[in-house]
Simulated assay, not measured.
Amino acid sequence: MPVFDEIHSLQFVWFTSGEPPHAVDVLLHGITGSEPDHVQRFKPPAAPVPVSLAASRIDDADIRIQIAPGRVDLTVTPADAMVGSDTARFESNAVVTRYVEKAKAISGLIGAAFRQSIVIKAAKKVASEDEVGAAFTELLGMEADLTGAADLSFSINRRVEFDGVTYNRVLRWQAETTQLHQVMGGGHLGGIPDFGAAPPIARSTYMTYILDINTVPLTTLRQPAELEKVFDRISAIAFEALKFERAGDLR
């Protein structure tokens, strides 16, 4: 089974009972220590519900915070890939620890929440779709020839409890193919790029592994100090799950 040695994205979610006491730019400042690169605010009729966004690029990461009714989302993605590369990525799982600490740090600014989640998209680059098929047979512990199979995906959820808190462990493995195209000026169809006119610069196949570790919703609110402890536990569960070699390892 391949080791998932790339991180393609991170997402932290706080489910709240109302609007946070601080604006979105203040929350992002709590992550980056600087003013946002840009801030956007929408309200009906421009958006179905009021939404505010703030984003910055810091070192190797694009960081975005979004506030919408009932939730706050922190999304971290790698900065744009180098020319000739097909996917931006973090090369080490250490990025998870780094941003767990930052998520904990802004929990006090967000206030109380009744549910929390960390979503990690990890990946392993493989040589071909056939290799993904072989990896899936090992993942599932089955005797099958998946050569040439398309749309491979497998997901499972098994709850676990620690210190009186119940966590969902929603794990999903799937095959993905990415392509990098060079877009030239002009093109066809009134200036719309015609991707079919030229082969991609790069094409890669990945086996991706998406982990959504979240708490079962409460009827009461957890305060910031409790939220920090829960994020510590969620990250520990995620790191354990990243080591799974087969679906049967989920106990």
Rank of each mutant, 00 (worst) to 15 (best):
F90M: 06
A122Y: 01
P20K: 02
V13Q: 01
L171N: 01
R172W: 06
D60L: 03
V26E: 08
G84R: 10
W173S: 09
T32P: 00
W173K: 13
T219R: 11
D60H: 05
E6S: 13
V26N: 05
E138T: 11
P20Y: 01
T77M: 06
T208M: 09
L250C: 03
R172K: 14
L74M: 12
L10F: 02
K102R: 14
M82L: 14
G190M: 01
G164H: 01
A175I: 14
R98Y: 07
Q179A: 13
D194W: 06
I213T: 03
L242N: 12
V100S: 10
R169L: 11
R71I: 11
F162E: 13
Y209V: 05
E101Q: 13
R246C: 07
D194M: 10
Q174R: 15
F154I: 08
H188T: 15
G33S: 05
R246F: 07
G196N: 07
G248Q: 06
D145H: 00
E226Q: 15
D194C: 13
S17G: 15
I7S: 07
K102A: 07
I58P: 03
L221N: 07
I213A: 00
V126P: 12
D59F: 03
F15K: 05
A61S: 06
A105G: 10
L10P: 05
M1V: 15
E101I: 13
D212A: 04
G18H: 01
A202C: 00
V39K: 14
R41P: 06
R169E: 12
R41S: 08
L221T: 02
L27K: 05
S235G: 04
N214R: 02
A225Y: 12
A79I: 06
R169V: 10
Q182L: 12
E6L: 15
V3H: 14
Q223W: 08
P2N: 08
S56Y: 00
V183L: 12
G30N: 02
Y209M: 07
R41M: 06
E176T: 15
E19H: 14
V165N: 03
R64E: 09
D25M: 05
A238V: 09
A113T: 07
R71K: 15
I192Q: 11
A23L: 13
A202E: 08
H22R: 10
D73S: 14
A135G: 05
N214K: 00
A68Q: 09
I118P: 03
M142N: 02
E161P: 03
L211R: 08
A47R: 01
P199V: 13
K124Q: 13
D62V: 13
G18C: 00
P20W: 04
V13S: 07
D145R: 01
M142C: 04
A135D: 05
P50Y: 07
D212M: 01
K121S: 06
N93T: 12
V132Y: 00
V160R: 02
G191M: 00
H29W: 12
V51A: 11
D145K: 03
R203L: 04
N93M: 07
D73F: 11
S9P: 02
A198R: 12
T77L: 10
S204C: 08
L227N: 10
A105L: 14
P50S: 03
A135K: 00
K104W: 14
E19K: 10
T220P: 00
F231R: 09
L250T: 08
A135Y: 11
S52T: 05
L27I: 05
A241V: 06
V126F: 05
A134R: 11
T178N: 12
E138K: 11
G30S: 01
I65H: 02
P44K: 02
K243T: 15
V13D: 06
